[in-house]
Amino acid sequence: MFLIHEARMIVPNLHQITVEAPEVARSWRPGQFVVVRAEPEGERIPLSVADLDTKSGTITFVFLNVGYTTNRLASLEAGEFLPTVVGPLGNPLQLEPVKSVLLVGGCYGMGSLYPFAKAYHELGSEVIVVSEARSSFLLYWQERYRKLTSQVFCITRDGSLGLRGHVKQMEKIFEKHGTPELMIANGCNHLLQTACATVQPFGIRSLVSLNTIMIDGTGMCGVCRVTVGGETKFACVDGPYFDGQAVDWEELTLRRKSYLYQETLSTFSSSSCNHHLPARSA
């Protein structure tokens, strides 16, 4: 059982939970993730680690409330427990000093890129942060990034702050500030794919955390398989970060939808109001 120290919504529908998991906190390195369960008979879902404190042995995740399990997670409060927080899973990224690194995050990715910002800042690399959101009220942690770098940009779909549009707008940033050496991106698959397509003509090395379905996270089930460079890989043990220019995005996008119907069913049935869709036959 893993004690929740803090749980709150940071912007609409995006939540932050800090949980005591000292063994995970001790071994975790940037790039790795954890698998959590929100309730005793709960489903296992992967989440990135957005921050950690080795002194108190806590780790922090930022997550978007999209379905059954994230909805359950969002309803938890400080003092309650998560039955499972297992990890750190996946491979840490080999962090080498580069001249400049571009961190591109959307939704929860804005949080889970923070450890890279810290790490590259310590390595002495120039850190460029790009956050993408539908509207300015969905941006968060911008001030944290500003403490580390002056190069903090945002792109909003409605143009309410920063550039208007999607991550394709990064081209404008490159024109003005030059092209970085390496991009690390985190968020939904659509954001990752668009970001990769955007930086491809600039020859920027691209590392992206692929958003697959996962169960165990240890290489046992194979549900997380993706095709990268023509080879089948397991995102949980071979990734989660891969060369974004070599990913078969079409396959990934289709596979992510494998349980679309069932997820909708369980999401509706997790609603506290029982009048929506098929009732949970509890």
């Binding site: 008979e41 489903e43 399990t69 169960i215 494998s258 069932q262 069913l265 049935s269 509890a282």
Partner: peptide
């Protein structure tokens, strides 16, 4: 036991 249990099976 889906959807009584949250992990789906098709």
């Amino acid at each position: 036991r889906f959807p009584t249990m949250p992990t789906p099976i098709v």
